[in-house]
Every structure is written in structure tokens, then in C-alpha cells.
Design a protein around this nucleic acid. Structure first.
Lengths: 363, 363
DNA sequence: GGTATGACAGCAATCGATTGCAAGTTACTA
DNA sequence: TAGTAACTTGCAATCGATTGCTGTCATACC
């Protein structure tokens, strides 16, 4: 907040030494090279003058910035803020700064962001926007950039990633519904170009078979994105079939919320008529109407571990690539219940929506 | 993603000109200084070589970075992501980059962030963490940094800010409840060191008087922070009084959500027993149980306008300070209704909570 | 035909810090 | 006591781009 920034030269002059010496004193790594007495004096003077190192200038020379880029598909998805918080916590402690950028899922914007951040000399990236085949990310990794993927990963070699056990999570959801007595269990799948979309779908399918239920293509609806709108659309398709499901496993909470919307439109009660399970346990999932049963993943930890992995990778470019897989847990709340006896007219299309009455009608 | 970065010197050599000339060509402002033919040629060569300017180096010389810092109290509060999105949209279009940092409301962390960003040569700040008397922010403004406050502002001169009309918003909430027939209307106030906390409180109080209701100190509970936990605590206090309110105006949605919690604990129904109004209309407010009636503010616009103001201020340091006040609107949803006839025992303390049964019991 | 005018483009210092190299000290050994 | 090793610290080039100043050259004007 000082008027003119104090430079290293100023400190050097004041302390009667050469700027190079000041530089050495202020860098822990080179500090031992200088006489302890001198070092103390310089440090003292620097403190008194309120000197602070100019990271821009330093970065120019060292090609390091002690900052890392964090690429997020959509900041307004409540899943990500806790992850970011976890990342920042670790980075902060290590003296790094996180530069958060959201890409809105647009590849063009993503490339732009990435390059802008590279130009800013970031030392690495935590990327949450990965798709299974992702040229931008693959390039980044190939070009020896330090990259750690979080939540989603890519298919390929040499990847650092921290992800939930997606198959297992889906299976938990299916098992839960099956245990409640559901036999017609549907899936609202996420975009299949993401590992979360694909693996949760596969996990769902496998679990259905393991539960001894008949797999049915008609019970799979493809969500076009991980959004409420896409979830509603997919759920409408499921409800419009001849023999609609009594339980829905959504590939994430936003899709599940979309299912809520579709159910309300169709005048159906959740969980009375249809049970819904989400994935992620995003913040506020417990406050929805009804509170969402969902697969919980430890957001903060995932972020923190990703940051730690990244720091390791930055410190040691030869570090062995590794993928950390977190075990999810099921949070049972109010959106799932035993299936009721079928009571809707067996028409093929959903009957005209009875207005948008709230999913949980008041007594 | 190229191996070694192409520098201006490389381009100059290839084009057979001096680096200085390349610099002039690539800067729109100085471009007219060079012969159009040469300029075209240089530009061509630069493009072919895949040259991209190094913002670090440029920043070192120009003390500009074309990036701005965005200080957010808490990224996990869903109010902020849409604001950030608005900011990014405008900044992007102007060729600037937003560096988002969250402070968790800790002054120490805030100062740290601010200084880290200043060191990174940001050209200005959008600050959402302001408190009414805020030394850090006041210093920043005083030291001629380009600063625009968003959502909250400070008390003082020469401030650029974009805020909602907090008094008016509170008044809308009160009027709504009064119109429904409520006479015992309480307020869960936000921290009074923030303008949002203070003005919403004042607006509440004024509106109560204007409605011809008797102001009652017992109907004001102070939230310690803008969080669910604080809201629950404050609401419990309100419910424990001899003559509890039938309507609650919360200073923001998180506090309102806390009120939901307290009501559920006390076995009370919302809106059957007590109506609740929030403030901000944060994302998902319409999905809660019950859907929250709240004062809506245009998050994206607020962010965008703040960014625009900041850009103006950066371009013209002599720009006149201005505060933009946005008119809020009331979104009536499921958390408000006419007061029921009093039917609870008139005991002074809340009776033992009947477990944490969901606020909206299933039929 | 000589000089004033102006358009171009090169030169070199500069932003603030880092670091290999070398010089100067000091101390220690043979 | 000369010689060498171990410390310290200064020197200066460097990272990549910007910009005031200067020099050059062609054109225009009288």
C-alpha cells in the first residue's frame, strides 16, 4: 500500500551491500551462502523498509510464479466451491496462490484460460473440466506441464488425478433402491464423454445385473449436461414410457434436481411415487424438497489431495503419476422410500401436468 | 504449449527489424507509428511463428497486468458464483482476467490476498468483503488503487460500489408479511459491521413503523455471521420468547435457512406456523423445503456492472466515484402464508424439540 | 538547389530480481 | 611463510518487453 514500491536495490543501498546479496539473503535456498551477520543485517533493513519481493520480476527470471491455475467447468455448480476451498487451503500453506478460472464448459474458453494462465507463468494446474478424450488437457500433460485432474479424469497415460469411485457410488445408489424393494430402477446418465458420466453409468448397469434385475435400455436416459435442465428433460423421457420407473439414480445432484422438476410437473410425489438418488452430495442437498438421498464424496479432501499431488509434481517433475480414488458413502435422506403400489393411469404419455405443485405438498 | 516460448527478439530477427519495432506493431496504441507495410509483415511473421506476448515481462515494464483481483468472503455461499460469473463476462470481453480469491471472512487472510494480488500487479479490485469501517479496503482506496465494491459497501468518501437497495428490500419483505396479516414480525439481522447487515436491519425497522406495527426489540435477533448456523441460533432465540413471531425476515438466505432448521427443531411448520423471508434469492432458493420467499437481486448484473465500473476507473483514474443501487424485487414462494390462529402452548421456552423432523413432513 | 519537415525505425536504458563467475578475504596447512 | 581451500560478496548478464531519444532518409517547399 506504500506509494512507491521498495526495490531490492533500495534495500541493498541502505544495507550497504550489493543487490545480489540481498537476493541471496531473501531466498531461503541461497541464504546459507551469505555470512550470517550480513544476512541478519540485510533482513533487518528489508523488514524496516517494508520491502516485499516483486513476484513479477522474479517470475520473469525464474519462470516460476508460485501460483497454480484451477480450471472449473462451472463455478455455479455448488460441488466445486468446497473443492476449491480444499485446494486453496493446501496451496496457501505452501505459499502458493490459486488462480481460479471457470470455463463454462466451452472448449474455446478453456483453451483461452489455459493459455492465459500459462502466459502468467503458473507452475501447474488443477483441472476439473477433463473429458475422457481431452486434447487440451492431453496436450498440457504431454508438454510436461504439471497437471492434476480432480473429480473427472481422462483416459491415457501418465495422469495425476484425484477422483471418487464412480462405479462404486452408482452401485451404492442402486443397491439402496433395490434393498427398498424397487425393481424398475432408471438411470439419468451424465455426458458420456466425461469419466464421471461413463463410469457412473457403467456402475449403474453392473449393479443392476448384480442385483438380479433385468437390464432395460428403456430405463436409461441420457442427460445432455450435468444441469437441472438436462435432468428434467431426461426424467420426462423416463416418465413418458409405458412402464415408468419407481426409482431413479441420477449421475449427479443437479440431474436429480431436474428429476424433481419433472416429477412435480407430472404430479408425482417424491419419494411417494418415485424415489430419486443423486451423486456428489453437494451443499444444500439436505435442504431440498425433499432432502436428497445422494452419494457423498469428500469435496474438501479431494481438493486438498489434488493440491498436494500437484505440489509434489511441481517439486519433482519425475514424480510417478498416480490416481487417488476416494471411497464414496451413501447419505440416505428423504427422497427415497419403498415403492408404492402402482396407482397412476397406465397411459403411455404423462397426463397433463397438474400445474407445478410443490413436490412435497403441505399437510 | 510450444517447447520454448517465441520471444519478441525472435520475431524481430525473422522479420529483419528491431525488437522495438515489433513491440510497437503489436501494441494497437503504438501501431500507427510504424509503416503499414512493415507492420503487416511483422504481424504476419509473428503469427506464423506462433508468437504470444509474455504478460509477465510486459507487466514488469508497464506496471499493468490486465488482470483484476476479485475478493470474495466465501465462495461456498451460492450468492457469489453468479456475481463472479457476471464479473468474468465483462472482464473477458475487455481482455482482462479475473483472479478470484476467497478470504473466509478472515481479515488476516484478506490482507494477505490483497497484497499477493497487488504484488501480482493487478490493475484493480472488485471487493465483496467490505465492512462498514474497513481499514484494509479504505487503505486500498486511499492509495489510489482502482477498487469497486460489490454487494456491500463502506462508509466513506470516494467509493465506487454496486449494491442492492437493502432498505427497500427489507421493506418489501416486511410489507409482504404485513399484507398477509402478520403482526408479530421478527428480524434475524446480519452482522452490523456490514452495510447489508445494517441497512437491512434499518429498512426492517422503518418498514415495521410504516406499517403501523409496534417496534419490539424482542423481535430482533442478531446473527453473528451470514451463515446457516448463525441463523439457526438467532431463530432459536426468537422462538424461545414469551410471544414468538409468526413471521421472520432474515437478512439473507443462509440465515433464513438457519431459521428453517430452528423451526423444524421446535416442531413448527413453515409457513403453517411461521413464515420466513430471505434476502438475495441465491441459487436453489426455489428448491428448498419449503421454497423460499426472498428478496431477489440481479446477481449477474451486479457483478457485470461492478466490472464495468472498475474498467472505467482503470482507464480513467480521475473518474468520479459512484454508487450504483439496484432495485430488488420480491419473489414470493412457499415459505410465507397468512398467520394461523395461535395454537401453540403459550409457554415461555420452546418445548423440547421433537427430534429434527423434516420441515415439510410427508403426507 | 538547399534546407525544413516529418515519417520510420534503430538504439539503449529500464522494469526488479536472479545467478554463474570471479575477485577478495580469511584461515589453515605444509 | 608461501600456498591453498573455504567463505563471502560484488559484477554483470539475463529474463522479455517498452519507450524516449536519436539518426536516417525521402519528400516538400521556397
Amino acid at each position: 500500500m506504500s506509494q512507491r514500491q521498495v526495490t531490492m536495490r533500495d534495500v541493498a543501498r541502505a544495507a550497504g551491500v550489493h543487490p545480489g546479496t540481498v537476493s541471496r539473503v531473501l531466498n531461503p535456498r541461497t541464504r546459507p551462502l551469505v555470512n550470517p551477520a550480513t544476512a541478519d543485517r540485510v533482513e533487518q533493513v528489508a523488514r524496516e523498509m517494508g520491502y516485499s519481493l516483486n513476484p513479477i520480476a522474479r517470475g520473469l527470471k525464474t519462470r516460476r510464479s508460485f501460483s497454480v491455475g484451477v480450471l472449473i467447468p462451472d463455478l455455479t455448480n455448488p460441488l466445486f466451491p468446497p473443492i476449491i476451498r480444499g485446494i486453496e487451503r493446501v496451496l496457501d500453506a505452501a505459499g502458493y496462490t490459486a488462480l481460479v478460472a471457470s470455463t463454462d464448459g466451452e472448449p474455446a474458453r478453456e483453451r483461452l484460460r489455459l493459455e492465459a494462465l500459462i502466459a502468467r507463468q503458473v507452475d501447474g494446474f488443477v483441472i476439473a473440466t477433463a473429458e475422457r478424450r481431452h486434447p487440451v488437457v492431453a496436450d498440457a500433460i504431454a508438454s510436461e506441464l504439471a497437471v492434476v485432474l480432480v473429480n473427472r479424469t481422462i483416459e491415457g497415460e501418465g495422469v495425476f488425478a484425484v477422483v471418487p469411485d464412480d462405479r462404486r457410488g452408482s452401485a451404492m445408489a442402486v443397491d439402496h433402491l433395490a434393498a427398498l424393494g424397487h425393481t424398475r430402477i432408471a438411470h439419468i446418465a451424465g455426458p458420456q464423454q466425461t469419466t464421471t458420466g461413463l463410469l457412473r453409468y457403467r456402475g449403474f448397469f453392473e449393479a443392476i445385473e448384480d442385483a438380479g434385475l433385468a437390464p432395460d435400455r428403456g430405463l436409461i436416459a441420457q442427460g445432455e449436461a450435468f444441469t437441472i435442465v438436462a435432468g428434467a428433460k431426461a426424467a420426462r423421457e423416463l416418465l413418458a414410457t409405458a412402464d415408468p420407473p419407481t426409482g431413479i439414480v441420477a449421475a449427479n445432484d443437479l440431474l436429480a434436481l431436474g428429476a424433481y422438476t419433472a416429477l412435480a410437473e407430472a404430479g408425482l410425489d417424491c419419494p411417494g411415487d418415485v424415489s430419486v438418488v443423486g451423486f456428489n452430495d453437494m451443499p444444500f442437498a439436505d435442504r431440498f424438497a425433499p432432502p436428497l438421498t445422494t452419494v457423498h464424496i469428500p469435496h474438501g479432501h479431494i481438493g486438498a489431495r489434488a493440491a498436494e499431488l500437484l505440489l509434489e509434481r511441481i517439486e519433482d517433475p519425475a514424480a510417478t503419476p498416480q490416481t487417488l480414488v476416494f471411497e464414496p458413502t451413501l447419505r440416505v435422506r428423504g427422497s427415497t422410500a419403498a415403492p408404492a403400489r402402482r396407482r397412476r393411469p397406465a397411459g403411455s404419455g404423462a397426463t397433463a401436468a397438474r400445474g407445478s405443485r410443490a413436490a412435497a405438498p403441505r399437510p
